[in-house]
Amino acid sequence: MIIKRLILENWKNFPIVDVDLNDRVFIVGPNAAGKSNLLDSIRFLRDVVKQGGGLQYAVENRGGIRKIRSLSARAISHVSIEMHLGEPNDETPKWKYKLVFKHTGGGLFKNEVAITRESVWSREKSDYILNRPNAAEEDSETLKYTHLEQITTNKGFREIYNFFSEIQYLHIVPQLVRDHNSYFLSKDKEDFYGRNFLEKISVVNDRTKKAYLRSINEVLKLAVPQIESLEFKKDNVGIPHLEARYLHWRAKGNKQQEDQFSDGTLRLIGLLWALLDGSETVLLEEPEINLHSEIIKQLPEFISSLQRRKSKTRQVIITTHSYEMLDNSGISSEEILILIPSKEGTAIEVASNLNEINSIIQAGFTPAQATIKITSPKDISKISQLKLF
């Protein structure tokens, strides 16, 4: 399945969002427009269903509802997230899940959130199979927990639970991957940025792990020619490592572990692993960082080929500032979301709905030529004219 439609109300930068999504999505916009926050709305539901998570955890982990609720919302106090799920070619989604919550507590009581609506619509039933709250069955305590996160209550829509739990997010910070001392602090915890990346590799069964590493090796031979082979191993205290054999004047080459890899090499390995591992939606935060421009140019078509390597299509949602990433005529305007910030918050438009962009693409120019200039800061060219001293 993929996320076919995303509807948000009062979420961070976004007072209102209602957009259709393709199986490949490029999110483009100025700095601080909310690209990461848009991805975080999807991660939020993943946090709700993950082991050790839940609604209260997901909210608290983001600093409480005051950090989630849009500053542009004014009188609106609730936050709403709705996602429609289905196969890429479905005209009608298979599932619709909606969660609405607001602040509760304060003073002598713990600051938490309470559910004001949780609903599940099923295509098979052509109706809602869940619609909360139910006055006869609910009280203030039960409304602190979603039915989605509870195995005893989500049986009728377990497929939604499984989908959200398998969503992957990747934004590797190379310095954290290199920090061996942080491994035991992050072990068994979700950490999209550092040592937990290697822990995720370690728990994959050996056969699959070797197959993925073979594929990664094939790419590395082209992108980083001095790397002859990449292996995964654990040291004598159980800390996982990546080990590469570099071409060297010695006959057997020279071995290096991840603490000696370049930033670009680590991020490329992380990107490749994220695309290979799993089958549900993957969220990629600016995958172009630290990569050579010629590698970046190849990413859209490379990602597209990996999306369809099995019998099902995997959704990939990417935030990017990269001209090279979008300088590809194979990217359609329907795949690009443009973030448009204003004093009233950020709006989102599919590029195909914006005449200014769509006409440029239809004239034969690439999405990069149509979008990067339009989404850049209006007066940024004046920066060189500033007299700071």
Rank of each mutant, 00 (worst) to 15 (best):
G52S: 11
I340A: 11
L55H: 09
Q257F: 07
I167H: 00
K343R: 13
Y193V: 12
H103W: 13
E91Q: 14
Y97R: 14
E218A: 06
E335N: 00
N61F: 11
F157L: 11
I380F: 15
N162K: 10
K35M: 03
K125N: 12
N154G: 02
E124C: 04
P367I: 09
K233R: 14
T366I: 02
E231F: 05
A211Q: 13
I318M: 05
Q315L: 01
K233P: 05
V25C: 11
T375E: 09
F302G: 02
N205Y: 13
R46W: 11
S215Y: 10
V316A: 09
V48N: 02
E344I: 08
P30T: 10
K4M: 13
Q150F: 08
R62T: 03
L275M: 12
L242K: 00
K221Y: 00
T366K: 05
Q257H: 12
G156P: 10
V350G: 04
Y128K: 09
F389Q: 08
K67G: 08
S332R: 15
K310P: 01
L8W: 00
I289R: 08
E141R: 12
V59C: 05
H248R: 08
L185V: 08
Q256A: 11
N134F: 14
L39R: 03
K297W: 00
D139R: 06
D47Y: 10
Y193S: 13
E228G: 04
S186P: 04
L388I: 15
L388R: 12
V79E: 02
I172G: 02
R69V: 10
E301C: 09
N61M: 12
I338W: 02
P88V: 02
Q256P: 03
F261T: 03
M83F: 09
S41H: 03
K382A: 13
E138C: 12
F389P: 04
A351G: 05
K210V: 03
P287T: 01
E228R: 14
L271G: 02
T152P: 06
N131K: 15
Q315N: 04
Q51G: 09
E82Q: 14
E112A: 12
E280S: 15
R267Y: 09
L176I: 09
G106L: 06
S229P: 06
K125T: 11
M83Y: 06
A33T: 05
D179L: 15
L170V: 03
R308P: 04
K234N: 03
E138Q: 10
N236G: 11
K4P: 04
I357T: 00
I295Q: 00
G364C: 00
K297V: 01
P341S: 00
F389T: 11
P377S: 07
V350W: 10
L108I: 14
L6A: 14
I227N: 00
T142I: 15
L266S: 01
G270C: 08
R24C: 14
Y169A: 07
I167L: 03
I383L: 13
T371K: 07
N154S: 02
K96A: 12
L271D: 01
S77V: 11
I160H: 03
H241Y: 06
V28E: 03
G364P: 01
